[in-house]
Every structure is written in C-alpha cells, then in structure tokens.
Design a protein around this nucleic acid. Structure first.
Length: 284
DNA sequence: CTGGATGATTAATC
DNA sequence: GATTAATCATCCAG
C-alpha cells in the first residue's frame, strides 16, 4: 500500500499541499526570530583567542615560531627566554587541544547533519517534509553545535588566562638582583638618605649600572623607602656600612663639599623626612 | 620546613 | 604620573 501511495499520480501535488499547510501553521509561528545578531560574548572570545594566537593562522612550524619570537625579542639578552619558550610551549599545547577539539566538533556536526538530512529525506517520502524544513533543522543543529563550540572557546580562554597569570606575572618568577646591583642601589640610597628620590636620569643611570630596568629601580626605591621608614633600626647597620663606604670613596676623590652633613659616627636617627628638609625639587 | 627578605603589583593619594 | 602602604608570591638561609 505504501508503494501504491508513493506511486499515486496525485502524490506530488498532495505532498506539496501538505507541506504548505505545515509551513503556514507550524513553521511560521516559531520562525519569527530566525536571525539573531552575532553574540557579543562569542565575538569577545574569538577576538581574545585570535589575539593570543590560539585560533589565528598557523604561525609556521614550532621551531620557526620560536626562532621568530627569539629574533623579535633579541634586543636584550635577558634570561627570560627560557620562561618564554616554556610559556609558548604551554600555549601551543592549549592551541593544539583547542584545534583538535574544534575539528572533532566540526566533524561531529557535519556527520550529525548529514545523518539528520538523510533521515529527513528518507522520511520525506512518506511524511510531508519540505526542503525548507530540512534547512531549518540543519541551522538548528548548527546553532547547537556552535554553542558547544563557544563553551570550548570559553574554557580555552580561561586556560590561556591562567597560563598568562602564571607565566607573565613576574611575581611568580622573581629573581633577586645581583649582589653588586643591590650594592649600587644601596650606595645611592644611603648617600641620598635625606632625599632618596632619584630623578629620571639618575634612575636610568642606576638601571644601566645594575643591568635592570628603570621601573625596577623605581620599585626598588619605593620598597626601600617604605621599609626603611618602617623600621629604621633594622637598617642602621646597613646605613653605617654604606655611609662608611661612600665616605671612603669621598676621601679617595678629594674635593667633596660637605653640604650633605654626612656623619658616619652618628647616623641620622630621624630618617629621610629629615628635620633639615633639603629641597631638591626637579622640574616635571 | 619556616620565617624573614625581597621584587612586583595594586589601590589610594597627592 | 609618581609615591605610599599593603599585599602577594617567591627566594633563601637557618
């Protein structure tokens, strides 16, 4: 009977009528909000992944990328190249997982889609299913899968953020300055105890001499000032040591005027907000 | 392992 | 923008 029905000469006409009715009654009701604007959240995630180089174009082989990055940061031979390579290794790991997952999803999606399409096409022989409806079904499937993809993107973003905070946050890979660097910094600090605020030029000078950055010099002085002020007693010994050191230097290079009142025997007990406020105001 | 030292970050302040 | 004060995260000597 089925076969007889399918072969009936009125069947195509009947089919199209049934499809039309169905479209009018069911599809038109739900098909109102068909077009949704691109999700801003998804766009944000996409942009971030792109910026991090996770979802972007394949940037050559791993070694080539490493070489390029090394050349890009080749200006200063800092020892953070190891950390960077570690960071990039982890990042590429994330990237790999992301891409394989994405591919898996895409494959599953297309598989599922073709499966559903075949099923619907098969059923359309006995049931009124218009091509439009199949199309709709496909778009529904795609939307579902893209929401899954968004979850993947979200979790990938999270992983990248965690990685960043672990590697790029310098606090986590703190190295103490070299002995001579702290020597130089302390020397400056204790010889300018009445006004331990190096100018920009002085900071650059110190940075160069210590092999650190200007902001590191600023950090050091910020920490030193506050910690000295907080417990002057604890730094007394150090103060005497460096006062003696600079005094020795002054004796070797004769001709130093004593405007600073450097008294090694009686160290300044008042601290640097000294009673004798020495205005060394610099122009900004 | 633990506590102090230390470099870096952050919120508040000027 | 610079500095302070508090805090974080790590280092390191004991």
């Amino acid at each position: 009977r089925k076969h007889a029905l399918n072969c009936h000469r009125m069947k195509p006409a009947l089919f199209s009528v049934l499809c039309e009715i169905k479209e009018k009654t069911v599809l038109s009701i739900r098909g109102v909000q068909e077009e949704e604007p691109p999700d801003p959240q998804l766009m944000r995630l996409d942009n971030m992944l792109l910026a991090e180089g996770v979802s972007g174009p394949e940037k050559g082989g791993g070694s080539a990328a490493a070489a390029a990055a090394a050349a890009a940061s080749g200006g200063s031979p800092n020892d953070n190249s190891i950390e960077h390579s570690d960071y990039r290794a982890k990042l590429s790991q994330i990237r790999q997982i992301y891409h394989s997952e994405l591919e898996k999803y895409e494959q599953a999606c297309s598989e599922f889609t073709t499966h559903v399409m075949n099923l619907l096409r098969e059923q359309s022989r006995t049931r009124p299913i218009s091509p439009k409806e199949i199309e709709r079904m496909v778009s529904i499937i795609h939307r579902k899968f893209s929401s899954i993809q968004m979850q993947l993107k979200q979790s990938t973003c999270e992983a990248v953020m965690i990685l960043r905070s672990r590697f790029l946050d310098a606090r986590r890979k703190r190295r103490n300055f070299s002995k001579q660097a702290t020597e130089v910094l302390n020397e400056y600090f204790y010889s300018h105890l009445s006004n331990p605020y190096p100018s920009e030029e002085a900071k650059e000078e110190l940075a160069k001499k210590c092999g650190i950055t200007v902001s590191q010099v600023s950090n050091w002085f910020g920490n030193k000032r506050i910690r000295y002020k907080k417990n002057i007693g604890k730094f007394q010994e150090e103060a005497n040591l460096y006062a003696a050191k600079t005094a020795a230097d002054a004796t070797t290079v004769v001709g130093q005027q004593g405007s600073q009142a450097n008294s090694p025997s009686t160290p300044n007990s008042g601290g640097f907000p000294a009673p004798c406020y020495t205005p060394d105001r610099r122009i900004q």
